[in-house]
Amino acid sequence: MLRYITQRILYMLLTLLVIATITFFLMKLLPGSPFNNQDKLTETQRYALNEKYGLNDPVPVQYINYITKLAQGDLGYTFQFDGRTVNSLIVNGMGPSATVGFEALLFGTIVGLLLGILAALRHNTFLDYGAMVIAVFGIAIPSFVFAGLLQYYIGVKLEWLPVAFWNGPEYHILPAFSLSVGVIATVARFMRTEMLEILGTDYILMARSKGVSKSSVIFKHSVRNSLIPIVTILGPMAIGLITGSLVIENIFAIPGIGEQFVKAIQVNDYPVIMGTTIFYSFLIVAIILIVDILYGIIDPRIRVAGGKS
């Protein structure tokens, strides 16, 4: 198990290095220096600025410097505001982004699990079909379309909830809900398939033949065992949430990382784009790693198999 984790962490670091390298050289491919557009600068001032940010060094030196700084967690400075670091932007945006993401994940997982379990227990009934229609819609309809529609109908037309911004708990509902739709659909579908498979296994029949009560069979045997593989879709789900947050934060004007990222793309703030890209990559790669390790811990079959090797 320990060897496995070490190996995985090494792979993760390698992946991050590849991403950082690609990002760095792609950014170098872009024509001009970041300060060329600022006409007010004199030649000497520009030289001084380039010198300050190390842009006069040869590219390999810049690369080494960049990677060294990155290893220390330093993502550089933004062009948009004077003297602000990308790190501080990310730290500032982290609060709202993590809050919405977590709320969406929690709500979506709970609703999705209930929907999936009910659909499996009432297999081939109206409830099952209903849950699966919701799931197909939830998977198919992009969260930004859903968010826009919610904002228009519930925010603008009905005025039940604030249309945008981030000023209190009621501001969380629409964005978190829009973001959770995909989670609900994915979890419900996965749980239903998993439950149906387990309900058809011999060990469920065996449990019933022991006279174990129906609720015990459902919760102790079926749900418990279905929950284990659910962990494996947490990784893809986290990626989906991050993708969704980029646009959801933009639509609802939430001051999160996603909103800053989209803004940076629109004004070509390269350090922020690079920094956020690497931050997102780190997040996703780390989540996938944690999920894999978690899976090994909660599934006794893998736990022991891993321990022996």
Binding site: Y11, I19, I22, I239, I242, L246, T277, I288
Partner: peptide
């Protein structure tokens, strides 16, 4: 595969 496609 480890690189998030969104980023790329």
């Amino acid at each position: 595969y480890g690189i998030p496609n969104l980023v790329v």
